[in-house]
Design a protein around this nucleic acid. Structure first.
Lengths: 356, 356
DNA sequence: CTGTTAGCGCTTTCAC
DNA sequence: GTGAAAGCGCTAACAG
C-alpha cells in the first residue's frame, strides 16, 4: 500500500539516476547535473526543487558514468605483498594519506609475493583507470623482471598513467617511471661501521635472500664497511634466511648449534632480528653482553624487544607520501623519462649493540 | 618519421579503445568485444587478426564503460581508522584475501578516527558502486551514530549494496546490514576470571575510552567476572587511558606514583599492555612476580614483550574474511534484514600472568 | 559468423 | 536560465 515514490526503477532496485531526479523535480537532466556541479547559473527556485529531489531520492553520482565522460577517475592504486608487514603498512598509510589529501581514492591489492599475481593486479588497476600504479617492496631483480617492468612503464605512460616503484631499484633514466627508493647500502654501511667501531670483527650478516634487491643492497653496505675496516669477509658469516621471524630463529639456532663463531649479528630486518634474539637467548647468549644485535627497518617489533633494538630507520611512511606526490605531480606537467627520489636512512641507537 | 600506428588518438595520449582495435584489425567494434569476451563464435582468422591488434595496441578494457553497462563493478570497500594498527591490518588482510578469492577488487580508505571523514569515505565508495562497504573498528555508540548508520544501511540496501559493520555492535534485527562481531564481553570475562582464579583481588582495568563500544564490552566482561567472584568493583580500579602505548605508559606511571594499589592489570589492548609493562618495569615492579599483566587482541606486540603477554586472542583476519563472505553471499540471494555473525575469542596463556 | 543499432548515466556544447 | 542533442567506451539484441 506504499505510494510510489516516483522513482524510475522499482524501489530497492538500484540507485537513483539523474533522470529519476529530473523527473521528480520536473526539470531536465542537464539542469540537475548543473545544480550538482554548481558551476553554472541556475534559478534559485529550480535549484531548490532539484536539491529536494536529490535528497528525497538519496541520489549518489555514478562515478563510472563520470569517468567515462571525463576520463579522470582520481584514484591511485598500490600493490604490495601483505598489508600485515609493519613496513608495508607504513608505506600504505603514507600513500593513503597523501592520496586522500589530494582528493584521490586508494585502490589496494595484495599479491602474497607472487610476481604473476602482481601482473594480474596491475591489469585490474589499469582497467580501473588508476592515475598511478605503485608497486611496493623488494623483488628478485632478474632480467625477466626488468623487461616486464619496462614494458609496463611504457604502456602505462602511453595510457596516461604512471608506474611507481617504491623501494625498488631504478630501471634506467629513459624509462618513464617514478622510482622512490631509500638507502639500503648506506644504512647497512653505517650500521656495520658502528659494529666494527665497537671492536666486533666477526659480524654475522643474517637473513634475507641475497637475490632480492633489498637484501642485496644491505649486504653490499655490509661488505663495503668490512672492506673499509680491512676486515676479512668470511663467507660463513653471510647466512641467508627467510625474512620471517620464526624461520630466522630456526636458522640461527642451527648455526649456533653448528658452532658458528661471531660476536655480533646484523639482521637484514627487524623481524629477522626478533627471531635472532630468541635464538640467541635460548642458546644462553646475552644481548648485548655476549653478542651485539642490530636490525634494519625500525618498525614495530624494534622498540618492543628487550633489549630494545638498535636498528636502521627507514622512512616508510614518507616513502609512500613521496611516491604519490611525485606521480601526481608528473601527471600535471608531463615530461619524458624517469623521476627518481632517494630517501635517507639513519642508525637508531637503542640497547642491543655494545662493545665487543 | 615514425609511421602512424593506426591508433585513433595520437600516440601517448590515452588508452586504446575497442574502436581503435577494430579499425586496425579491419573489423567492427562488437567483433572485437566478442573476441575478448570469448563467449561467442568468431572465425579463426578474424580472431587472430583481432588478437594481434589487441596486442599491438596494448589494449586494456575500460572498467567504467563496462560497469556502466553491466551495473556490476566487483569491488568491496573498507574504511578504517589506520592501516598501521596491527589488528586493523589483520582485518584488512582478511578482507583483501577473501575479496581477491571472489574476484573482487578492494578499495581502501582511512579516516584517522574522524566520524565525518568516515561519512565522506562512504560517499566516495558508494559513487564507485562498491558491492559492500565495510566499516571497521570501535566507535562511540551514541544516538547520532545509530541514526546515521541506520539511514546508511537502508540507503545502501536500496542501491543494491550492503553495509557491513565489523567489530561494531548490531543496529537491530530489522536493519539491512551485515554485522560481524567478536566476543568482547566473553573474552574479558574469561581473562578476568583467570586473574581472579589466581587469587588477585585488586585487578586494574586499564585503558580505553569506556564510551567506545570495544572498551565498553571488555569492561562489562570484567565487571561480570568480578560480580561472579563476589569481588567488590572498586571505582578507582577502572582507569581509562588513550588506546596508544605511550599515553598508556604515562597514565599508569601517574597512577603508580599516586600510590594506586593493585596486584594485576588487565589492559584493554595489547598496545596498552605494552605501555603498562614499560611503566611497571620503570617503577621497579616485576611482571608477573609483583604484578600480573594481561592484554586483549593477541596482535604483534604480544609475543615480543618480555615476559610474553598473556592475552585474549581475537580472530581479526577471520573477521575480515567473514565480513566479505557474508556480504557477497547476501547479495547473491537477497533477503530482508540483518545478517549477524559473532566470532569467539579465547585466552592465550603466555608468561605475564601468575599467582598473586 | 559478423555488422548495425541502441543505450547504460553522465557532461558538454549549442540553441532558444 | 534551461532544454535538446551528442557522445564517452562498451555490450546486448537484432539482423543479416
Amino acid at each position: 500500500m506504499t505510494t510510489d515514490t516516483g522513482r524510475g526503477r522499482q524501489a530497492g532496485n538500484g540507485r537513483a539516476t539523474l533522470k529519476d531526479v529530473a523527473e521528480r523535480a520536473g526539470v531536465s537532466v542537464p539542469t540537475v547535473s548543473r545544480v550538482i556541479a554548481g558551476n553554472y547559473p541556475v534559478a534559485t527556485g529550480t535549484r531548490r526543487r532539484v536539491e529536494r529531489a536529490l535528497r528525497e531520492l538519496d541520489y549518489v553520482a555514478n562515478t563510472h558514468a563520470r569517468a567515462l565522460r571525463g576520463h579522470a577517475i582520481n584514484a591511485v592504486a598500490f600493490i604490495l605483498n601483505d598489508v600485515r608487514g609493519p613496513s608495508f603498512a607504513e608505506v600504505a598509510h603514507g600513500i593513503e594519506q597523501e592520496a586522500a589529501r589530494q582528493g584521490r581514492l586508494s585502490l589496494i591489492c595484495t599479491t602474497g609475493g607472487h610476481p604473476d599475481r602482481e601482473l594480474e593486479a596491475v591489469r585490474l588497476m589499469r582497467e580501473q583507470g588508476a592515475e598511478a600504479i605503485i608497486l611496493i617492496g623488494g623483488v628478485r631483480d632478474d632480467e625477466g623482471y626488468r623487461v616486464r617492468m619496462r614494458a609496463l612503464a611504457e604502456s602505462l605512460d602511453q595510457a596516461g598513467s604512471r608506474l611507481v616503484l617504491c623501494g625498488r631499484p631504478s630501471l634506467g633514466e629513459d624509462v618513464p617511471a617514478t622510482v622512490v627508493e631509500y638507502e639500503n647500502e648506506a644504512g647497512a654501511y653505517a650500521m656495520t661501521s658502528r659494529l666494527l667501531g665497537f671492536g666486533h670483527r666477526r659480524v654475522l650478516f643474517f637473513g634475507g635472500d641475497p637475490e632480492t634487491t633489498t637484501a642485496a643492497g644491505r649486504l653490499a653496505g655490509y661488505r663495503r664497511a668490512l672492506a673499509d675496516f680491512a676486515v676479512e669477509a668470511a663467507p660463513e658469516l653471510v647466512a641467508p634466511a627467510p625474512f620471517d621471524r620464526a624461520a630466522a630463529r630456526a636458522v640461527l639456532r642451527e648455526r649456533l648449534a653448528a658452532g658458528l663463531d661471531f660476536t655480533a649479528v646484523f639482521a637484514v630486518t627487524d623481524a629477522v632480528a626478533a627471531g635472532a634474539l630468541q635464538a640467541l637467548t635460548e642458546f644462553g647468549l646475552a644481548v648485548p653482553e655476549d653478542v651485539s644485535l642490530a636490525g634494519y627497518d625500525d618498525v614495530s617489533p624494534a622498540a618492543d624487544l628487550r633489549p630494545q633494538l638498535t636498528t636502521v630507520h627507514v622512512p616508510y611512511e614518507e616513502l609512500g607520501r613521496v611516491a604519490v606526490r611525485l606521480a601526481l605531480d608528473r601527471r600535471n606537467r608531463p615530461e619524458r623519462g624517469q623521476q627518481h627520489a632517494l630517501l635517507g636512512t639513519h642508525v637508531v641507537v637503542r640497547e642491543s649493540v655494545g662493545p665487543r
